[in-house]
Amino acid sequence: MARIVMTDDGIVFDGASLEEKPLGGAETSFIEMANALAARGHEVIVCNKCPAERTHRGVHWRPLAQGVPDSADLYIANRGDRLIRLCPKAKRSIFWIHNPAGYLLKARYQWKLALRRPVIVFSGASHAGTYPGWAFAGGREIVPYGVTDLFRHATPREQVPPPRAIFTSNPLRSLDWLLELWAARIRPAVPGAELHIFAGAATYGAAGAAKADRMGLVLDRAAALADHGVVLRGPVPKTQLVGELGAARALLYRGDIGETFCSAVAEAQAMGLPVVLEDIACMSERVIPDETGYCVKGEADFATAAIQVLSDDTLWRRLHRGALAQQRGWGWDDAAASFEQIGGLR
């Protein structure tokens, strides 16, 4: 058993938050990794902005303000520059990032990365490509996010669902674009189709609160399209989201240049839900074209693909079965095993 210390200085959350409230992808991934490493027999200590010290699913959570242990077999700093040089006597260190890596080129990151030389972990090839070769690192590795186990046990659906599309990402990530395309092209071609929006500021904690006004404008537009089949549902915890994905027919998402993995799409695919995406950033890494969904260029092709998935039952069955067969094999235990290997624990 190894001693693993993990740190994060973003929003307030702890291990129970995953079951209790909606969370963003970075926070979800951090919790899932901690849980998976503990399940593999390691002592895992998390120091973050949790409200109080507690142990949850074998992981010891404690407020970052109480300090960070000086030593560990493996130290995992999560995204923040002030964390890079903590736990100075750790045998190995990883710097795990979740956003496009351009921000690491700031001086306050580069000098710390130059001194510590942690292995930087990216979530995919597109993500790794955002960090130039000349920038400091003690190594570069790609470890895709696992799919939360809750989404990995769907069975093939006997009945083709009604034309209900779903959006489960950040409303500032092109939801306005999707709403316009839905009202102008998709809904008129599929009468009775619905677009359910599971999105809102609550998912992102303090960061979401700072953008609440901007999100509100987009969500107000969604609410105004009720006559076009748009249903504003708000964010929900994953325990509820699994049922919503299981009732939907497709996930529609344009993508965003800020995406580096997109757990929303990965979760939908693992549930056997066909997706229609635009070829932006990492989106092409989340779908197997014409087997589990579509990744297209431009709004015309996006609308055409969405209309087909929402209206062609034979096509839907093929994409549904393809996603179930091919898109749920990699879980958090697999991702944790990769972190063990990077950290010299196996």
Rank of each mutant, 00 (worst) to 15 (best):
R85L: 12
A268H: 10
W177S: 06
Q326T: 02
V147N: 07
A264V: 14
I120Q: 05
D73P: 02
I288C: 09
A202R: 14
L319F: 02
K297H: 13
A199G: 10
E32H: 13
P69D: 13
A90K: 12
S17R: 04
S338R: 15
N170H: 15
A65N: 02
W134I: 04
Y253R: 08
P191E: 13
V276S: 02
V5Q: 04
E180T: 14
E340R: 00
A323T: 06
N48C: 14
R92I: 03
L251K: 07
V230W: 12
P235I: 01
R108V: 04
D81I: 00
A266V: 00
E19Q: 10
F95P: 10
L324K: 00
Q308V: 02
G192N: 02
D70L: 09
T314N: 05
V143C: 05
M283A: 14
D149N: 14
R318Q: 03
N35S: 09
G146F: 02
E267H: 10
A36L: 12
S29G: 13
F339T: 03
P289E: 11
G243V: 00
N35A: 13
A137S: 15
A247R: 14
R62M: 13
I45Y: 01
R40K: 07
A193V: 00
A250F: 08
S17M: 00
V218N: 07
L83E: 11
D81H: 14
A336Y: 03
C50P: 06
L181I: 05
D213G: 07
I307L: 10
V231E: 08
G25L: 02
Y131R: 09
A281T: 04
I197S: 04
K49P: 00
R249M: 05
I94V: 15
F198C: 07
E19N: 07
G138S: 10
I84S: 08
P163S: 11
L178E: 07
G293Y: 02
D220F: 06
A189R: 08
R317N: 02
M1D: 06
A26N: 07
A77D: 05
E244H: 11
V59G: 02
R249E: 08
I4K: 06
F13R: 08
V59I: 00
D81K: 12
V143H: 01
R82G: 11
L310S: 10
V119W: 05
T55L: 03
V12S: 14
F167H: 10
C50K: 01
L23A: 01
I4Q: 10
D301S: 09
H98I: 07
Y103D: 06
M283N: 12
A336S: 08
P274C: 12
D8N: 11
C295I: 02
F151N: 04
K297T: 15
A135N: 07
A305S: 14
T130K: 06
L310A: 05
A72T: 11
A248F: 07
R140L: 07
T130C: 12
R85Q: 15
V309H: 14
A125Q: 15
H60I: 03
R54M: 15
A26G: 09
